[in-house]
Design a protein around this nucleic acid. Structure first.
Length: 532
RNA sequence: GCGAGCGUAGCUCAGUCUGGUAGAGCAUCACCUUGCCAAGGUGAACGUCGAGGGUUCGAAUCCCUUCGCUCGCUCCA
């Protein structure tokens, strides 16, 4: 049974997240709030490290990508142009019999005879349902069709042997209130707006409705021209952004995986349309070939992103890839590749890399009336750029890193007793704390003093954690759970008990538990080489 | 949103059926001990039993409502 095991595994991870301060439930003392999560001390550092590393990799280390930080609340027209206002607020209905959900605007109007019932009573017990119900059947069909469906419905309402009450019929035309599949009545249409709504200004009127952005991408598109004007970039080039987005999810699930408030790291990489690109000069610098068409750029970014995940410890064998079929593609996309991680609760998406064509800029040109076209000096052509969009969810990446790092190791101690060592094998680049610093013994002031000197030396360069409480092994194990990749212990040799070893410390590796002797002066360069 | 299960200390859980003023282990803090891989000693702190309401002389326990979590369905432009 794989299922209970996966749950058990996930529960251990959730438990560790709370115990060590990676993730807390938002507003916990008030009972929590569904779909919102906070990061504790270790989680906040981990997330910051991931975002900083992404930002450095995407923009600071590249010539051809610049950054942007836009507001969460933007002009509501943006969401009309992007299609979110219409597709995010469909009225939905549920079939009362099968519970299947439909968009009420996609139901084909039907005609026929409606059989109404006021309720049903059980023929063998006293049980009664007084819930009204009705069934639509095609004209000329036998009434028993309707009665059969109605009896099924009342059975689901707890009436085991329903005897239908108050039957009456009515001819009806062009209704969308009944399930075309089985004739069952739907629930009342309920609006489903996945965007969080608010009002700009003190008056709550329809004129000043605004939305919390459901994705960060649109901000980049609407500022495209401004960035192009100031950034001294030529196509192809990109604009990236890290920021919060909000979706009022129907059903948040799987710990932080699907939250209502989440953070995205997105790049919109603008390229020439294939016709223009094919006339452009070749070759350029690696990663900036101007003559590449969208398919080459798309592949390029998929590969870049996979390499990036590898560089923070998510190797190709824990990732999975899904090239979306034509039928799965969103309305704006020419091609989409999902990068997925094998979570304990299933293989789920971390990032989507979409070739969006010129859909977004064209929409904004249409809705704003402002030209989004650029002029290409080389080919003397004007065109609306096309876009490749690698869009990653930060919070689900953090969860993937945590799941991937969580390791239980069976070890045997000196007495031959089996014990479990829990280690968070986070990549040193993203680990919240880089090094733990320990005096071998607390009750020897010389050791403590020297350890504090080492702490101060290292603290200037990286996050450190100083601990002198309890046995040394216990302190190592505590840092194992926090994911701290290195431990430095100050012992009597550090103080010069063995003259050759004066001013050296033991450096313990979290994953192998191996120790090596290192001069204090070598610590900073060594550690920096591991964490950068 | 529907259905099922669950909610007691920081964590894992016992106690709930059979109502009588709250327990264990681990973790935490202090001191001691500890010469390199946790769980030695002493002491301390920690829960209005998810919340609200009801029944009762008395509710963690029974009833109702609600919030949260998990699973299945649904949803995920």
């Amino acid at each position: 049974m794989a299922e209970p095991k996966a749950n058990e595994h996930m529960e251990k991870i959730v438990s560790l997240c709370k115990r060590r301060g990676f993730v807390f439930q938002s507003s916990e003392i008030y009972g929590g709030i569904n779909g919102f999560w906070d990061y504790g001390p270790l989680g906040a550092e981990l997330k910051r490290n991931v975002k900083d590393f992404w930002w450095r990799s995407m923009t600071q280390k590249r010539e051809d990508v610049v950054g942007l930080e836009a507001t969460i609340i933007m002009h509501p027209k943006i969401w009309e142009a992007s299609g979110h206002t219409s597709t995010f607020s469909d009225p939905m209905v549920d079939c009362l019999l099968t519970k299947k959900r439909f968009r009420s605007d996609q139901i084909d109007p039907q005609s026929g005879t409606v059989y109404f019932y006021s309720g049903a009573k059980d023929s063998t017990s006293e049980k009664v349902s007084s819930e009204a119900y009705s069934v639509l059947i095609g004209n000329g069909k036998h009434p028993d069709h309707a009665r059969k469906i109605a009896r099924q419905f009342y059975t689901t309402r707890g009436v085991a042997n329903p005897e239908l009450l108050g039957e009456r019929t009515e001819l009806i035309e062009g209704t969308v209130r009944y399930n075309p599949g089985n004739g069952s009545l739907f629930t009342e249409p309920r609006p489903f707006n996945l965007m969080f709504k608010t009002y700009v200004g003190p008056v709550e009127s329809e004129d000043n409705v605004a939305y919390l952005r459901p994705e960060t991408a649109q901000a980049i598109f609407v500022q495209f021209k401004n960035v192009l004007d100031v950034a001294r970039q030529k196509l192809p080039f990109g604009i990236c952004q890290i920021g919060k987005a909000f979706r009022n999810e129907i059903n948040p699930r799987n710990f932080t995986f699907r939250s209502r408030e989440f953070e995205q790291m997105e790049l919109e990489f603008f390229i020439k349309p294939d016709e223009t690109a094919s006339k452009s000069s070749f070759p350029g610098e690696p990663g900036t070939e101007p003559s590449w068409g969208w398919e080459q750029w798309h592949k390029y970014w998929v590969e870049e992103r996979v390499k990036w995940y590898e560089s923070i410890g998510l190797s190709r064998d824990v990732l999975d890839f899904h090239w979306q079929q034509k039928s799965e593609l969103a309305h704006y996309a020419k091609a989409t590749v999902d990068i997925l991680y094998k979570f304990p609760f299933g293989t789920q998406e971390l990032e989507g890399i979409a070739a969006r064509g010129d859909y977004d800029l064209t929409q904004h040109q249409k809705f704003s009336g402002k030209s989004m076209a650029v002029f290409d000096e080389e080919t003397k052509e004007r065109f609306i750029p096309h876009v490749i969009e690698p869009s990653a969810g930060v919070d689900r990446l953090i969860l993937a890193l945590i799941c991937n790092a969580y390791t239980e190791e069976e070890t045997t101690d000196e007495k031959g007793l089996k014990e479990t060592r829990i280690v968070m094998k986070l990549h040193p680049r993203v680990a919240p704390v880089k090094v733990g610093i320990f005096p071998l013994l607390k009750n020897k002031p010389e050791l403590v003093k020297k350890a504090q000197e080492v702490r101060d030396l290292l603290r200037a360069e990286m996050p450190v954690f100083y601990d002198d409480a309890g046995a040394i092994g216990r302190r190592y194990r505590r840092q194992d759970e926090a994911g701290t990749p290195f431990g430095v212990t100050i012992d009597f040799d550090t103080l010069g008990e063995t003259p050759d070893l004066k001013d050296t410390v033991t450096l313990r590796d979290r994953d192998s538990m191996q120790q090596q002797r290192m001069a204090i002066g070598d610590l900073v360069p060594f550690l920096l080489s591991k964490i950068r």
